[in-house]
Design a protein around this nucleic acid. Structure first.
Length: 731
DNA sequence: ATAGGGTTAG
């Protein structure tokens, strides 16, 4: 809290905290004060952003120390909280106004004051020209002070003998003139001068960009951030944002700590520095340099910058998308530690991240945490959790999803369309279309209208269940209830026809799309291409591929993956390689699936050893092998009868934090069966059930064909699983 | 500045 000035003018000086204009004269400072007083009044009236409470104070003194009329100086300060009477020279008591002074003034609070002082100075100069003020004007300087009256920052010299010409040149973008000027001045020095002159930061920025390009140099981090600092002071945030965007894009070898070191050098407003750090983190995240953003987040803590949700929420979300879940949880805990107040959105991102990696219990805990922090979960929070259970849950997951639905209703949070869509999809994916239909009815009874997504989910569910006719009927029902089928609707149906061996019907639907004014997208083509590839019709597949290129629909990695898989299954590895090269030439790079296809084709040829080499190559390329990758390799080794190697792959997978899934167990169980080790296979089966994994059709086929037919009765701890039902029943 | 639902390839 600032202590307001009391009676004498000396004290006024010692308590100066806001910027002060100091004018030195050759003579007669006292008459100067009088003139200044009226000029400041004029400047204040001209400066609209000054509030009523901001008034000017004057002080004068002599350079030599005696009070005579020799050379002297006059100071004027515009500050908050003074009453009318104190605007006079050497004003008296102001103690009653103390409440108006901000307890924690920031530099930017004084910005209008700066402008006012600058205006005053200009007026002084003008007045001198027309000789209304006696005595010769020597110099005018505006500088901020601290409580002790000392300069806090470098003086913003308004003695602009250098700048007006230069700033004019810059604002008119007369670069050739500027270049001429720079024959005797170093571009770096000029930048420094500009910064010291208090010129318009936007102009300085313009010069900064031009000089870097023109002289192929890069200004130091400190100067760079001084510009950003002054832009922040003038609240030119969008300029800073676009600057940092470019900065982050072609950033050289700057380490995050070098950057963070430069920020406090550029100014010492905690607030401005934190804003700059915040915007830097955001710039990293927006340019998909998530890990760098994460590093900056960590460093910001060390440097004492306070980040906001503006950068932290996108960072959390970015980490979830990059599946850097450990880091996401770190940021979450750290935010709490640093007292960055999380909002619902922050929590929802965290819950979503945890759900996506199957940590459903942790997600539930976070929802409990929210309440402790006084944030209420909303529909989205619960929808996210329900979706987590639908997609990642184990035995009885739909029961659990239903239970959460009931819980949210009990808490007075009303389920919406999305809630029901998630549940309907959950039942469909659980191969329980009738359950899905039940929820569909329930949704309508609750007065919610199914939307396009609802129908798409159900149409897809019916198609996956082989009921393509019912799917078509549902599409018609959707149209009659005034909902327009979109690309997804068409894609889902096309896929339904493809998977049910009627590619011709699929092509008919594809042709229909045009008539209905729905544009096929890359996925439409990819689905059809895949169907032809699976059918062995590589010519037709490539015809479609060429067609999509003609129509400017750009093939995706998935498109190439389908074609590559088709070529591999024909044994045409050479053509597959060529296609990969073509893909690379289109700036697309092989993804995990591409590798899985290649690995699978090697394994099928009995070359699992070569396939493992590709696994290593994936790590070199920074790809994160999936369950499918490892399962495919294990399958390869199992087919070769090399169980030991298969188990080593499993260990490698688990070391990377991936737990065996149903397919892993199916592969291994089958491997052991083929070796005649039925007891061991049974052990794996039990292990799988103990871990809450739901056996699927393949599991049952293996049990039936490999175990039962060989006279072995699996002891699966009394688990009986009916494939067509959702839930496991225990006897 | 940021959060939840549907379609393809292994």
């Amino acid at each position: 809290m600032l202590k307001l000035l009391s009676s004498t003018s000396r004290q006024i000086q010692t308590h100066l905290t806001s910027p002060c204009l100091r004018v030195t004269t050759e003579s007669q400072p006292s008459s100067f004060v009088n003139s200044l007083s009226s000029l400041t009044g004029l400047a204040q009236r001209n400066h609209k952003s000054l509030s009523f409470y901001q008034r000017a104070f004057f002080f004068c003194g002599s350079s030599s120390g005696d009070a005579g009329d020799g050379g002297g100086f006059a100071e004027v300060e515009v500050r908050s909280g003074a009453s009318e009477t104190e605007a006079e020279v050497g004003a008296a008591d102001a103690s009653d106004s103390s409440a108006i002074v901000p307890s924690n003034p920031r530099l930017e609070d004084y910005l209008p004051v700066y402008k006012c002082l600058k205006l005053t100075l200009e007026l002084v100069k003008k007045e001198i020209e027309i000789s209304k003020i006696q005595g010769r004007f020597l110099q005018g300087t505006i500088f901020p002070r601290n409580k002790q009256g000392k300069r806090q920052f470098s003086a913003l010299s308004l003695d602009e003998s250098l700048s007006p010409a230069i700033t004019n040149i810059i604002s008119n973008q007369h670069w050739s003139k500027l270049k001429a000027h720079l024959q005797n001045t170093d571009p770096n020095t000029l930048l420094q001068q500009l910064l010291n002159s208090g010129a318009d930061p936007e102009l300085i920025l313009r010069y900064f960009t031009w000089s870097q390009k023109e002289f192929k140099l890069s200004h130091s981090l400190e100067l760079t951030f001084r510009i950003l600092n002054s832009l922040a002071l003038t609240k030119k945030y969008s300029k800073i944002r676009s600057f940092l965007d470019k900065f982050v894009k072609h950033e050289k070898d700057y380490s995050v700590s070098a950057i963070f070191h430069a920020i406090p050098m550029s100014g010492d407003s905690f607030c401005v520095n934190s804003i700059l750090a915040d915007m830097l983190v955001l710039a990293y995240v927006r340019n998909l340099k998530i890990l760098r953003g994460f590093e900056a987040f960590k460093r910001a803590g060390d440097y004492g910058f306070k980040l906001s949700l503006i950068s932290c929420n996108p960072l959390l979300s970015g980490l979830v998308k990059e599946s850097e879940n450990g880091d996401m949880e770190f940021v979450y805990r750290e935010m709490i530690k640093r007292k960055i107040e999380l909002n619902v959105i922050s929590f929802n991102i965290v819950v979503n991240g945890l759900c996506k990696v199957g940590k459903l219990n942790r997600a539930g805990d976070v929802i409990e945490d929210m309440k402790v922090w006084g944030v209420s979960p909303n529909v989205i929070t619960y929808n996210t959790l329900i979706d987590g259970y639908c997609k990642m849950g184990r035995i009885g997951k739909m029961y659990k999803a239903d239970a959460i639905l009931k819980e949210m209703v009990a808490k007075g949070i009303c389920p919406n369309e999305v809630t029901y869509n998630i549940l309907i999809d959950g039942f469909c994916k659980d191969e329980n279309v009738s359950g899905a239909m039940r929820v569909f009815g329930e949704m309508q009874r609750q007065g919610l209208r199914p939307n396009v997504v609802t129908y798409n989910i159900l149409i897809n569910g019916l198609c996956s269940d082989g009921k393509v006719d019912e799917a078509v009927a549902l599409r018609d029902q959707m149209v009659s209830s005034d909902l327009e089928p979109n690309v997804v609707t068409h894609n889902v149906l096309i896929n339904g026809f493809c998977k049910n061996k009627t590619v011709n019907e699929a092509i008919n639907l594809f042709n229909d799309m045009e008539k209905q004014g729905v544009d096929p997208n890359a996925m439409t083509y990819t689905t059809l291409i895949d169907a032809y590839c699976k059918d062995g019709g590589m010519e037709d597949a490539f015809a479609l591929y060429n067609m999509m290129i003609d129509r400017r629909i750009f093939p995706e990695v998935s498109t190439y993956n389908c074609l590559i898989a088709g070529l591999c299954s024909k044994g045409d590895v050479k053509a597959a390689r060529n296609l990969i090269n073509e893909m690379v030439s289109k700036k697309l790079s092989a993804d995990v699936v591409t590798y899985n296809i290649l690995i699978d084709s090697l394994c099928k040829k009995g070359e699992s050893r070569k396939a493992v080499k590709l696994l290593d190559e994936m790590f070199e390329k920074g790809l994160n092998p999936s369950h499918v990758t490892y399962n495919t390799l294990m399958d390869g080794y199992c087919r070769e009868g090399n169980l030991r190697a298969a188990l080593i792959v499993r260990t490698r997978m688990e070391r990377k934090g991936k737990q065996a899934n149903v397919v892993t167990y199916n592969v291994l169980i089958k491997g052991f069966c083929l070796k005649g080790r039925l007891e061991d296979a049974n052990g794996l089966l039990n292990e799988m059930l103990e871990r809450g994994l739901v056996p699927n059709r393949t599991t049952y086929e293996i049990i039936k064909e490999e175990m039962m037919e060989k006279g072995f009765v699996p002891d699966i701890e009394g688990h009986v699983y009916n494939v067509s039902e959702t839930n496991v029943k225990r006897r």
